[in-house]
Amino acid sequence: MGRAHEVRKVAMAKTAAAKSKLYAKYGKEIYMAAKAGIPDPESNVSLKKIIEKAKKDQVSADVISRAIEKAKGGSDEAYIAARYEGFGPGNSQLIVEALTDNVNRTIAEVRTIFNKNGGKLGSVLHMFENKAVFTFQGLTEDEVYEILLEGDCDISDLEVDEEFVTITADAQQYNQIRTTLLDQKPELDLEVDAVMWLPLAETTLEGHDLELFDRMMAQFDELDDVQEVFHNVTRD
């Protein structure tokens, strides 16, 4: 069904994650954005975007306000962005992105998950593309092209699939495309609105390899430090 279908499946799987993990993920991101700038979403564009995404994923207002108040309170807590690459079962390749206050702890936990599931840490970043991805409904292909042309946006691909429009572009184009779409169509509901690592080639796993991969993904989902996991595994 194409890359757009796979991207939507990834987004839907993320929203199905446990609330506690989802809250922890956004709590860290909101805190870091508020601490890095003005702790007011009307004056801090990065903070506003993260809050919009959090609300869309049904993160409670209490979680959002607590993270902002924590930043206002002068907490010296700090998180470091870390990225880990590796090979999983079969021909799977994974990129694990984390926000951590203890790099040694996080890399040890990530390495253990790889090792226990038939994988290992290793360089795979060259097998992925860093892309801005937007998926939404309500506009025709021609309408989207017209909006993007007016906004002088440079895209890699535009795919229409089951009434959904999916735009893929270089990661550097994220802000320009997002601003252009929402300035022209403020009511647009962006089902996928993210910068993500997309594989250059996908693989399908079966049997024991698939079981190990699913267990690996479940274990990453349980780690509070892990924010996102990108991979090259596709499912029928």
Rank of each mutant, 00 (worst) to 15 (best):
A11N: 06
M12L: 09
T15A: 02
A16W: 13
A17T: 05
A17I: 06
A18Q: 15
A18T: 15
A18S: 14
Y23I: 01
Y26E: 05
K28G: 02
A33N: 09
N44I: 00
K49R: 13
E52T: 15
K53P: 07
K56Q: 15
Q58I: 12
V59F: 04
R66K: 10
K70H: 04
A78P: 09
Y79M: 03
G86Q: 02
F87V: 01
F87H: 09
E109P: 01
T112P: 01
G119Q: 03
S123R: 12
V124C: 03
E129N: 15
E129Y: 08
N130C: 05
L148P: 04
L148S: 03
L149W: 09
G151Q: 11
D154W: 12
L158C: 04
D161N: 15
F164H: 15
T168A: 09
Y174D: 05
N175L: 10
I177D: 11
L181Q: 02
L181A: 07
D183S: 11
E187P: 04
V192G: 00
W197E: 10
W197D: 13
L198W: 07
P199L: 07
A201Q: 14
E202Q: 13
E202G: 04
T203F: 07
E211W: 12
R215Q: 12
M217I: 14
A218C: 03
D221I: 03
D221M: 03
V229G: 02
F230E: 08
F230N: 10
F230M: 03
H231M: 00
H231S: 01
N232M: 06
R235P: 05
R235E: 14
